[in-house]
Write a protein that binds this DNA or RNA. Structure first.
Lengths: 213, 213
DNA sequence: GTCTATAAGCGGATAGAC
DNA sequence: GTCTATCCGCTTATAGAC
C-alpha cells in the first residue's frame, strides 16, 4: 500500500502500473501478483487504505464547544497553510476520486467517505443546536453546504494555482457559519482585509468569455 | 474534437487512446497523426475545445436584476435536475480536470477556467452593489465562496451517488446569498422541507470513523 | 488527407524454478 | 514469497503507398 502510494504520487493515477509499484517496493512484478489477484483488486484495497489514511488525517477530538469543533474540522481539511504531507494525501485521494466518474466500486467508496464526513459535520451542528449554542437550523443542509464548499476548495487547491481563492472561500465559509449558526456577530478577525495581498491570479482579469458587462 | 469527446465519454480518460478516437471518427489512427503531432498535442487542443463547450453551456444573459443573474449562473452549473447532455459535458470536464493534479499544461487551463468563472460571479455581485441591490460585501470573497461550493457540488454529483446532498448544498447556498447580499428576508420557498424525501444515502449513518459521540 | 503495415515498447498477467 | 522469463495485447508513433 505504501509503495502504491508513492508510485501514485510520482506518476499520478494515469501513470500507475504494477511495474512502477514493484519498483517502489523493490520487489518484482510477479511478487505483487502473489498478494493480489489483479491490478483492480490491488486498487480496491488501496482505495480503502487511502480512505483510512485520509480520514485519520482529518479525525479530530470533539470537545464541548461546537463552534470550535466545526472550525477545527474545516481547519483540518482546508488549512490556511497546507503542509507537504497533507498536500500529498489530498492529491492522491483526489486523483482516486476522479476515477469514481467511470468506476462503480470507486464511486461507492467515495460516496461512503462523503457520507461519513457529512455526518461528522452534521453531528457537531446538532450538538450545538441541542445545547443552545446554535440556532435551530437545518443541520443536514448546513452540513452539506460546508462539505461542498470544503470539497470544492480542496479540489481547487489540487487542480489549480488559485491559492488565494481557497483561502477566500474558507474565510467566507467561516463568516457564513457565524451568521447562520450563531447570529449576527462577526468573529474577532476583520471582514474585508484578510484577503492576502491582491497578488492573486484572478484579480484584474476582466473575463474573456463574454461580451456583456 | 467531437470524436475525442465521444471516446472520452465511452471509455473515460484512463481508457482514452488514439485507436478509440479513430474508431469514433471512422478514420484510421494514422490520419489523426496527420493533424496532430502527438497524443499530448491532441489532448491540449481538446482541453481548449472542452473548456469552450463548457463555458458556452454556462454562458447566460445578464440582465438588470443581479440577484436573478446570480441565481441563473448557479442554476446553469447546478441545476436541480441535470439533463443527460449536461451530465456528460460535466463528467468529461471533471475527468480532464483531474489530470490537472499531475499535468502542468492542464493545470494552467483549469486555473484560467476557474478565474473566468469567478470573475463572472464577481462582476454580477459588483453590479448589484453599485446599483444598491446588494449590501457592500467583499465581492471577491463571496464569488470564491460561490465557486467553491458550486464546484464541490458538481464534483460530488460526478463522483458520488449523493444527489440529495447536491440539492441541499445548492439550496443552502441560495439561502446564504439571500442573507449575505440582500439582508434578512428568506426567499418564497421553505426553510426546512425542501430536502426531498429522506431516502438519501447519508441519512441515519452514524459515522463509522470515530468513537466519540 | 487517408490508408495499410509495421516498429518498438509497455501494460497486465502467468509459468515454473528456487 | 520471491524471482526470472515469457506471452500477448494494445499503445504511441512512423513509413510509404495511393
Amino acid at each position: 500500500m505504501k509503495a502504491t502510494y508513492r508510485a501514485l504520487l510520482e506518476h499520478g493515477y494515469a501513470g500507475l502500473s504494477i511495474s512502477r509499484i514493484a519498483e517502489e517496493l523493490d520487489k518484482s512484478k510477479a511478487s505483487i501478483y502473489y498478494h493480489y489477484d489483479s491490478k483492480d483488486a490491488l486498487l480496491v484495497a488501496f482505495l480503502e487504505y487511502a480512505a483510512d489514511q485520509f480520514e485519520s488525517s482529518v479525525a479530530t477530538e470533539t470537545g464541548d464547544d461546537p463552534r470550535a469543533d466545526l472550525e477545527h474540522v474545516v481547519e483540518k481539511l482546508l488549512p490556511r497553510q497546507l503542509d507537504e504531507e497533507q498536500r500529498q494525501v489530498q492529491s492522491v485521494v483526489l486523483g482516486l476520486r476522479g476515477q469514481a466518474v467511470t468506476s462503480e466500486p470507486f464511486r461507492e467508496q467515495i460516496t461512503a467517505m462523503d457520507d461519513r464526513l457529512a455526518s461528522t459535520v452534521r453531528e457537531i451542528v446538532d450538538r450545538g443546536i441541542e445545547d443552545g449554542t446554535f440556532r435551530d437550523v437545518d443541520s443536514w443542509r448546513v452540513a452539506e453546504h460546508v462539505l461542498a464548499t470544503v470539497n470544492g476548495a480542496m479540489y481547487a487547491r489540487a487542480t489549480t494555482d488559485r491559492e488565494n481563492a481557497v483561502v477566500a472561500a474558507r474565510d467566507s465559509l467561516s463568516a457564513y457559519l457565524d451568521v447562520t449558526l450563531v447570529g449576527e456577530s462577526s468573529p474577532p478577525e476583520s471582514e474585508s482585509s484578510t484577503q492576502a495581498d491582491e497578488t492573486s491570479t484572478q484579480e484584474a482579469q476582466p473575463s474573456t468569455q463574454e461580451d456583456g458587462t
